[in-house]
């Protein structure tokens, strides 16, 4: 066994995680990008994306997960998502209104339609996904800190 397997859960859990985690991530991305056409959207997709990283953290331990997405990177993506969302909202002022849907809406039920909604979904997904993962990582690290002191 390699050193990677010293921490985390049993081999069965790790194998299944390795097989499924990519699918979970892809499903999250699908929910985000298809959010303006079918039920879903930035928040739901972002949560699923965050869960795929949480899944890795639960199965393999915190080091492996934090190597994939470090806390500072998560924090950066979170702030970036928020700023991106705000910029989209402010760009609406080109048409005179805050949050105005200033891109052409296209044909309903096409992938490229609904103007700024897909962009907003992506921004929300960055914010929620990174934010949720950062919360989880912060709570986990806090727990380890407490245990080390004891």
């Amino acid at each position: 066994m390699s050193r990677e397997h010293d921490k985390g859960m049993s081999l069965i859990v790790k194998t299944i995680t390795r097989l499924t985690v990519g699918l979970i991530l892809l499903y999250g991305i699908y929910i985000v990008l298809h959010g303006h056409v079918s039920p879903g959207g930035g928040f739901a997709g972002g949560v699923i994306i965050a869960l795929s990283f949480v899944h890795i953290m639960l199965a393999y331990g915190k080091e492996v997960a934090l190597k994939k997405l470090s806390r500072s990177a998560a924090s950066f993506f979170e702030s970036f998502g928020a700023v991106f969302f705000l910029v989209i909202a402010l760009l609406g002022f080109t048409g005179g209104y805050f949050f105005l849907n200033f891109i052409s809406k296209g044909k309903p039920f096409n992938l490229f339609s609904a103007g700024i909604i897909p962009l907003c979904n992506i921004a929300i997904c960055l914010k929620v996904g990174a934010g949720l993962f950062a919360i989880f990582a912060a709570l986990v690290l806090l727990k380890f800190e407490t245990e080390e002191k004891e």
């Binding site: 609406g92 209104y97 849907n101």
Partner: peptide
């Protein structure tokens, strides 16, 4: 101008 209103998103 008196009372002003803004409609978000038009």
């Amino acid at each position: 101008n008196g009372i002003l209103t803004h409609s978000v998103g038009g």
